[in-house]
């Protein structure tokens, strides 16, 4: 479905963010992209919908080559790429409904969108999605009045109302507490399953990735150093991705993680996937 070949991004500062990435994502597959800060996870996702212009390589989505599209064609292609952001990126001063409907902007003309006269079908779909994520009682709340978890659910609705083929998810849990993080990740994976939707999820938290993704891709300094099943993340592999550390606790917990228990998982805001157990073990 998505085929990336030789994707390279060099920023104008000279930093090589992505170095000849090859990646294929199948229909309905949820891929977690892990790796240290600065490994190029965000750049990779943003190259796919060309919020960042790739330097070289090809990206084909359902047979459409994205890297060479002109302005209008790129806008049409972006409609099929739903994006969910770190820290939600909702338009803070607009209402929940307006934020969700903004996912339809690619399908609606300027004046209709400006006058907020969206087709009834879009409004029905917005209500349906908001009900699905449990926010249908908040349609007229302003986005900045919502809690973090609620905002991210609005962000998910905004991406899904685009009727996308692929979800690009950038650190969806980076500013959420452990419980909300799990709920959000569960919601994303459930929705992907319901709609047979593929997703690429950037995530810092290794255990969360193992828990919810069907496949894990490890990125380090712009190259893929691991691509495989969640339980293949041995201390060895984690060292290859993140560098030398005591990974015993993180790797060990992988198999039992699927049980979906709700006891505390590691702090989501930590830049590296440090586990509290492991930190406690060190001291």
């Amino acid at each position: 479905m998505l085929h990336i070949r030789g994707l390279t991004k060099r920023y104008r500062t000279g930093d090589l963010a992505l170095d000849k990435i090859d990646l294929d994502v199948a229909q309905g597959e949820v891929v977690a992209l892990i790796g240290p800060s600065g490994a190029g996870k965000s750049t990779l996702i943003r190259c796919i919908n060309r919020l960042v212009e790739p330097t070289a390589g090809t990206i084909a989505l359902n047979g459409v080559e994205l890297t060479t599209l002109g302005k209008a064609a790129l806008r049409r292609a972006r409609r099929k790429l739903g994006m969910i952001f770190q820290e939600y990126a909702l338009v803070e001063r607009l209402s929940v409904m307006e934020n969700v409907l903004s996912g339809r902007l690619g399908y609606v003309g300027f004046w209709r969108s400006y006058m907020r006269k969206f087709p009834q079908a879009d409004i029905d779909e917005a209500f349906r999605l908001l009900a699905r994520v449990g926010l249908d009682h908040m349609v007229d709340k302003r986005a900045d009045a919502l809690s973090g978890g609620q905002r991210q659910r609005v962000g998910i609705c905004r991406a899904l109302i685009q009727n996308p083929d692929l979800l690009l998810v950038d650190e969806p849990t980076a500013s959420l507490d452990p419980k909300t993080s799990r709920q959000i990740m569960r919601l994303i994976t459930e929705l992907c399953r319901e709609r047979n939707l593929s997703a690429i999820v950037n995530i810092h938290d290794v255990q969360l990735a193992q828990m919810f993704a069907s496949r894990i891709v490890g990125l380090r300094q712009g190259s893929i150093v691991y691509d495989g099943a969640p339980d293949g993340l041995t201390p060895d592999v984690l060292t290859r991705i993140y560098g030398e550390e005591d990974w015993a606790a993180t790797a060990k917990r992988a198999p039992e993680a699927g049980e979906d228990d709700d006891h505390e998982s590691p702090a989501m805001t930590a830049p590296a996937p440090l586990d509290r157990d492991r930190m406690a073990g060190l001291t």
Binding site: N49, L51, R75, R76, A77, R78, R79, L81, M83, F85, A89, L90, V91, S102, G103, R104, L105, G106, Y107, F110, S113, G155, R158, Q162, L168
Partner: peptide, 9 residues
């Protein structure tokens, strides 16, 4: 960026 990523003009 979020609005742009929806395919908005």
């Amino acid at each position: 960026e979020a609005v742009r990523s929806t395919g908005a003009s």
